[in-house]
């Protein structure tokens, strides 16, 4: 269980850095707020908010904010020059991957908890069944954190990675976006679980694949 212990230690270290500096999380929240405002402006029709755009605005804002966070995910270790040592720890690259994915999940959950009510407020939207939207968001954030940690970790040494990360990440996580937007749209209309279950299972399938494939690929590709 060296992997788990090491991963937990790395995560605690990253969380301590995040709590002590607070700037990354704060700035990300500010960016998310700004992004939602820009979208709300973009969808204004004669002064009325377009409440039917809630799913798209929420998911795309989350995606953009997560991308920004992912670009900073490996930065503390990289700037300290510690990345090669952490990758070559006694348990291999796995603890690093899990700790970074968990850190990204923490960040995105924090942002999501702040962003979802704000977007609903801005767009004047009422969601009939918020619990299913929350479930879809949880599934989507897990998948995005796993794929995102993989892509961000692989691209640390690559030129133009700021451009390449979205280029790679957006098509890879497209099933989550497709499913999440559909579930949110159905939940807004008060649809029953039976109608959403297919989309939710699709997201569960994606997460299962990501849980297995992403750490394996990270280990293989950063060895």
């Amino acid at each position: 269980m060296t992997t788990l212990r090491l991963g937990w230690a790395l995560l605690r270290k990253d969380l301590a850095i995040a709590v002590r500096t607070r700037e990354v999380a704060g700035l990300l929240m500010l960016f998310a707020l700004l992004c939602a405002v820009v979208f709300a402006f973009g969808f204004l029709r004669q002064g009325r908010a377009a409440h039917e755009q809630l799913p798209g605005v929420l998911w795309v804002t989350l995606l953009f904010t997560n991308t920004l966070g992912l670009l900073r995910l490996f930065a503390p270790d990289e700037e300290a020059g510690a990345l090669p040592q952490v990758v070559r720890s006694i348990a291999g690259p796995a603890p690093l991957f899990w700790s970074k994915a968990a850190l990204q999940l923490c960040f995105s959950a924090l942002i999501c908890a702040f962003l979802a009510p704000v977007v609903a407020l801005f767009l004047d939207a009422r969601v009939a069944q918020p619990q299913w939207v929350a479930l879809a968001l949880a599934l989507g954030l897990v998948g995005q954190a796993l794929c995102g940690a993989l892509c961000a970790g692989l691209l640390t040494q690559v030129r133009l990675r700021e451009v390449l990360l979205p280029l790679v990440l957006y098509p890879l996580t497209a099933p989550l976006l497709l499913g999440g937007v559909q579930v949110a749209a159905l939940a807004m209309d008060g649809a029953q679980l039976a109608e959403m279950q297919g989309w939710l299972m699709l997201m569960v399938g994606f997460d299962l694949l990501a849980v297995v494939l992403c750490p394996w690929l990270f280990g293989r590709a950063s060895a």
């Binding site: 649809a191 109608e195 959403m196 394996w216």
Partner: peptide, 20 residues
């Protein structure tokens, strides 16, 4: 690996059955 891929595929196939 095999277990997760088959689970994921099973979920996806279940998702494939049109509920809506």
């Amino acid at each position: 690996f095999a277990a997760a891929i088959s689970l994921g595929t099973a979920g996806a196939v279940w998702a494939d059955a049109p509920a809506a």
